[in-house]
């Protein structure tokens, strides 16, 4: 059975990617299971989707513990432990990362023995706020890596899964996905189906006895304020708002009032400061600033060392 996991952020289209790949396997005559997994739906929060494909009936369900292929649509997720990108990754697993950095850098950084690949590069969009449809490309590369999905099936799968979005969107996605499919030709078949856990040699789950604990400990209550500070929602951001202080009029109330997360405060001189640990990157401030002093910068670029919003 093939077991494939797609990791991305809410809104990046990983559910769609899993559906395209699932449909493509199905068109090739495989039994298929595809599903997304997330908590309360939040744009930008880490989520994953998965595909199982087999020539036989699939009885396995739920999250994939031992993936044959892990696709990461957003490389900023790799170090986020809650995203669980590396969960169950072994030397058998192929990692496919959408990143500007080289595969060797990732292999070294993550200290993993399996094969690491990066997505073939895509042209930068003119409008940085326009969402990048990477789902079809991710599915296209995954389809090539398993080596059992034809170009025709991939094409049909994309057309079927995106039909509701109209012909223009289908065409745009087809172009990107088929280009990626073609570029990865030399890696065709590098992902191979994994095995089931045998019942004659398995690791004992070592269950424990759950002890009784006082309701002061065991009731799900938090009796203090400001615990949400400990939740670094800044990790959900794909775009970062950066203030150009040379254009800031210190009107003080517009950006900080519109910020839905109270992540903008004022310093002693009346300049707004963005709390990047909690800014989710909704870009409401960018749209509201009367003097257009707030810019949107892709998070990956910002992480790489371009202006991080310090006042010059």
């Amino acid at each position: 059975m093939y077991r494939i996991r797609f990791h991305g952020r809410g809104g990046q289209g990983m559910k769609t990617a899993s559906r395209i790949l699932g449909r493509a396997f199905f068109l090739e005559g495989f039994e298929v299971q595809d599903a997304p997994r997330y908590g309360a739906e939040r744009r930008g929060a880490p989520m994953f989707a998965y595909v199982r494909a087999s020539r036989n009936t699939i009885n396995e369900r739920g999250i994939i513990r031992r993936p044959d292929l892990v696709v990461v649509a957003d490389d900023t997720l790799v170090p986020v432990s809650a995203a669980g990108v590396l969960q169950g990754v072994t030397e058998h697993t192929v990692m496919l990362i959408n990143s500007n950095e080289k595969p060797e850098v990732w292999k070294d950084r993550l200290n993993i023995s399996g094969q690491v690949l990066t997505m073939p590069s895509v042209a930068e969009k003119e409008d940085r706020l326009e969402p990048r449809f990477i789902s079809a490309s991710c599915a296209g590369v995954a389809a090539r890596l398993v080596g059992v999905i034809s170009r025709t099936s991939l094409k049909q799968a994309i057309s079927a899964e995106l039909a509701h979005l109209g012909a223009a969107v289908v065409d745009k996605n087809l172009a990107g996905a088929l280009e990626s499919y073609d570029l990865m030709g030399s890696h065709s078949g590098s992902v191979t189906p994994g095995h089931e856990v045998p019942a004659y040699a398995y690791q004992n789950p070592e269950w424990i006895e759950l002890p009784f604990e006082d309701a002061r400990v065991s009731a799900p209550a938090i009796h203090a304020t400001a615990t949400s500070e400990k939740m670094k929602t800044g990790l959900w951001r794909t775009m970062r708002p950066v203030i150009d202080y040379s254009r800031c009029n210190r009107c003080w109330w517009v950006c900080s009032t519109f910020c839905p997360d109270s992540a903008i405060s004022l310093d002693d001189e009346g300049y707004p400061q963005i709390d990047y640990e909690h800014c989710k990157g909704c870009m409401v401030c960018v749209a509201q600033c009367p003097s257009h002093a707030i810019h949107a910068i892709p998070e990956q670029e910002a992480e790489a060392g371009t202006p991080a919003g310090e006042r010059l």
């Binding site: 009885n59 739920g62 856990v197 019942a199």
Partner: peptide
């Protein structure tokens, strides 16, 4: 639906 997982386990246990 967890019953299909149990079904898989039955097949593996039979193999063992």
């Amino acid at each position: 639906s967890f019953a299909t997982k149990a079904k898989d386990a039955v097949d593996r246990l039979r193999e063992a």
